[in-house]
Computed example of a mutant assay.
Amino acid sequence: MISRNKAKWTLLALPLLAGSISSAMADSLAGPSGELIVTGVYQPEACYVSLTNNGTIDYGRMHASTFSATDYTLLPVKTLANAITLNCPATTSVAITTQDNRAATVAYGPEYNPLPITTRSMYAPTLGLGVDSAANKIGSYIGQLQNLKADGIDGYFTDMAGAPFKTVDSRVLQPTLFMGASFTSGFVFNLYDNSGHVLSAKLYTMDYSVSPEIVSTSSLNLSRDVVLDGSITVSFYYL
């Protein structure tokens, strides 16, 4: 499930210092002095985020007999089309970060990545699927944003986090972004056009794909339903 968490970049007005008394008048008018400060915050009108199917990819009910009792079971890739829609009242530049809310529950299995990748981005962070009723780890999954559109035109992600809204060399662009990718504090994944310029648009849309793998059923408590519980927070930053 993708949950919403919007944030804003703001512009701060610089303090304005009142002029001091001129030296020509200093002798006759000397006395207490002070400064006047003007400050404020400009906030752009908020963009609105909507999630298709509440941002949930549902694998439905699956019988335990369809899973391996001795090995990991790889579930098919599922994609939620137009999973995220970001509507802005005016043309706006957007950056993004993602965070795995179930990172402590990752059950590392065989290395795999059936999702589309690029030559510059072979590493896919492994995300947690929660635990069963006996606190056993259920498995892991890979999540990916793709098919980014900005006002209907193809957009691109950068292959690594960087300073917000910074123009980059077009060679580092890619059509996908793995969820849960680590980044330095204060850095974000910017969105670009095919020339490496920061995107500016009113309407952004993107798909969301996942590929889970489940631990052996012998490692799970099957006396109760085992519920896949992946959860990612997606944060948008915008000007």
Rank of each mutant, 00 (worst) to 15 (best):
S216P: 12
L228E: 01
D169T: 13
K78T: 02
N54F: 13
V38I: 14
A64P: 00
L145W: 03
D27H: 01
P76C: 11
D58L: 09
A135W: 09
T176M: 06
P89L: 11
A90L: 08
T10C: 04
I96P: 05
F187Y: 14
S170F: 07
Y72D: 07
D169N: 15
R61C: 01
V41F: 05
T98C: 00
R61M: 11
Y123S: 12
F178H: 14
N82V: 02
M1S: 11
A201H: 07
P125S: 01
L173W: 08
P32V: 08
A181N: 06
I142N: 05
I84H: 04
N194C: 03
A150D: 00
I21R: 12
T39V: 10
L177V: 00
D207G: 07
N136A: 12
M1P: 05
T10G: 01
N82Q: 14
G180H: 11
G40T: 09
P32D: 06
G186R: 08
Q144P: 08
F178D: 14
D27P: 00
Y141G: 01
A95E: 02
P125T: 00
K8Y: 05
G155P: 04
L191K: 01
S23F: 04
Y112S: 12
F178V: 00
E35I: 13
M160H: 14
G34T: 02
L129T: 01
I142P: 01
D154M: 02
V210R: 09
I138A: 06
I21K: 10
V215S: 04
A107G: 05
P114Y: 06
L220I: 08
K166R: 10
D71Y: 10
P110R: 10
A83C: 03
S170N: 09
G31S: 02
S65K: 13
T52R: 13
I57N: 04
Y192S: 07
L148V: 11
G186T: 08
S195A: 13
F187R: 06
S23V: 07
R102H: 03
K6M: 07
T10N: 03
L191F: 05
V38N: 14
F183M: 05
L17R: 05
T118L: 04
H197Y: 12
L148P: 05
F187V: 00
S182H: 07
A103P: 00
H197K: 14
P125H: 01
N54Q: 15
V168S: 10
S133K: 14
T205C: 09
M179K: 01
P89Y: 06
K149T: 15
M179L: 15
L80F: 03
Y59K: 11
L173S: 04
